[in-house]
Computed example of a mutant assay.
Amino acid sequence: MVSRYLAHDLLWGMTPQQLPVDAPAWAIESIEAGQPVVVRRATSTAERIAVGVRGRLREQRYGTSMAIAAITRRVSPEQLCHVHTHRDLPALEALAQLRPVLDACGWAWGVSGSAGFELASGFAALHEASDLDLILRTPQALTRDQARELLALLDAAPCGVDMQLQTSSGAVALREWASASTRVLLKNATAACLVIDPWNPREQAA
C-alpha cells in the first residue's frame, strides 16, 4: 500500500504498552523517555506503519510497527533543514555549511539519521565523530554528472556526509549513483535490487 508516512519521518505517540512483549529493555526506556520512532522502509498496512526505535548505542536499533491511530505528531526530514541548535559539533557545522547550497539546488532536501533525530526531538544523538545524513527528493532523474558535482560539495564538508536520493521507486545512495558503476542498489519497502536506472519503475517489475 502507499502510505502518507515516508521513510525517515519521525513519529510521536508510541507508548511502552504498544511494544511487543519481547522488546529489549533499552527500547522500552527510549519510549518511556518520550523519544520519537522513525519510519522504516518496510511494508506497512492500512492500520500500522513500520517504525524503528533508537537506543543510545549505535547498535541499539529495534524494528517494530506502530498503530497509525496512535500517532500524535509527525516531523519530516524537510522540516529540519533550518532548525538550529546551540551544540557545536562537526555534523551540525557541516549542515550549516551545506544549507545554502542545498536550498539553491532546486530539489527538496532534508536531514535524517542522528542529526535529524536530535534536531527534531532535542535528545542528544550526535557526537564528535558522527556523520551527517541527508536525503534529496528526486522524483525526476538526477544525472550522474549532477550527482558528481553534488558529491564534491558534500565531500568538502567538515565531516562525512551521506545522502540518499529518494526516487518514486525507492532510495539509492548518491555516492553510489555518482560512481562509474553501471548498476546501483535501489532499496524500497519490499526489497533491495540492483538496477541501471533507479527512476525506471519497469526495472523493479522485471
Rank of each mutant, 00 (worst) to 15 (best):
P198Y: 03
V83C: 07
I49S: 03
W26D: 12
S76I: 10
H84T: 15
F123N: 07
E149I: 11
A27T: 05
V2W: 00
V51M: 02
A180L: 11
G52F: 00
W26R: 08
W26P: 09
A23Q: 04
A124H: 04
R54Y: 03
A7I: 04
V184P: 00
V83Q: 10
G63Q: 09
E78H: 13
P139V: 12
A129N: 11
P36Q: 11
Q164V: 11
T167M: 11
L132I: 11
L126Q: 05
L142D: 02
E149L: 14
L89D: 05
A191C: 14
A191Y: 04
V21W: 00
N188G: 09
Q146C: 06
G113F: 00
M66S: 06
Q166W: 05
L186W: 05
G52R: 00
Q79I: 01
Q164E: 15
R99A: 15
E47M: 06
Q60W: 00
D155T: 14
R73S: 12
L92N: 07
G110F: 10
M66I: 06
C159M: 06
D103K: 05
Y62R: 04
L174N: 01
R148G: 03
P198L: 06
P201C: 02
L165D: 08
V195M: 04
A50Q: 05
P24A: 09
Y5D: 10
R148T: 06
D197P: 10
S169E: 13
E93V: 14
H82T: 13
R144K: 15
Q204N: 08
L154N: 11
W12K: 03
S130Q: 08
Y62L: 06
R148S: 02
S112Y: 01
I31V: 15
A25C: 07
E128M: 08
A189M: 06
G110K: 03
H8V: 10
P16R: 05
L134D: 04
L142H: 04
I49W: 00
V111P: 02
A124I: 10
G52K: 02
H82R: 14
L80P: 03
A46W: 00
R40W: 05
G170S: 11
L136P: 04
I28W: 05
L11I: 12
D103P: 04
A69K: 14
S168K: 13
T85Y: 00
V38W: 01
R61H: 07
A206G: 15
P198S: 13
I31M: 05
L136A: 15
L95W: 02
L151W: 09
A129P: 00
A125S: 13
W12R: 01
C193I: 10
R183A: 06
R74F: 02
V37M: 05
L119I: 10
S112K: 03
W26G: 12
L185A: 11
I68P: 02
T143C: 07
G63M: 03
A178E: 09
V111F: 09
A70K: 09
R56H: 11
